[in-house]
Amino acid sequence: MSIDQERGVAGTDSVLAGPPRLVEFAAGAVFVAIALIASWSLWTDPYLELGKAGDDPGPSFIPWIGTTVIGLGGLAQMAWVVFKAVKAGTIKTSGEFVLAKLWLPALLVVSLIIYQQAMKPLGFLTASIIFALPWVAIFHWRSGGAFTKRYLIQLPVEAVLITGGIYSLFYYGINVPFP
């Protein structure tokens, strides 16, 4: 483990004398999960056998090395956190995964997926404008802006101009055939 890790992977304060953080454990768990998914994919593919073609270790050679390193590394990270937690008698929560912080990023991801799905039936430009209208307002609100009468007109105009401008740049500028 590195010095940096000793300093706490998700934060800046030293955990040398204090307990580890839950996110450090979760980081290890994420890598174990990735390794499990990857090994399942390799294991269930009948064509991906190691060392089938002479000296060539085969197409699953590097994937298996990567999967093993990630899996064992993730386990080592989790074990290290558990060891530190037992030693310190507790584990710290970082406050990174709280609803107050996560809801807006989650909303953006969901709305981006809907936007992507809507591109084909609605057309790129229409879908983009529908996506941009609420988000320009959200960015305005997040940067402390008020919703006076002026902004009720200005914000939609900005949304249309931004999406229209970018669409035109790609469509007419570099001939991208949008749906």
């Binding site: 590195s2 890790q5 980081a27 990735i34 590097i62 990567g66 990630i70």
Partner: peptide, 18 residues
């Protein structure tokens, strides 16, 4: 950040490359 997690992250990138 953590060098150890950076190595695992790099290996994940190698997997993505395959």
């Amino acid at each position: 950040g953590s060098t150890f997690l950076a190595i695992l992250s790099g290996m994940f990138g190698v997997l993505l490359g395959t």
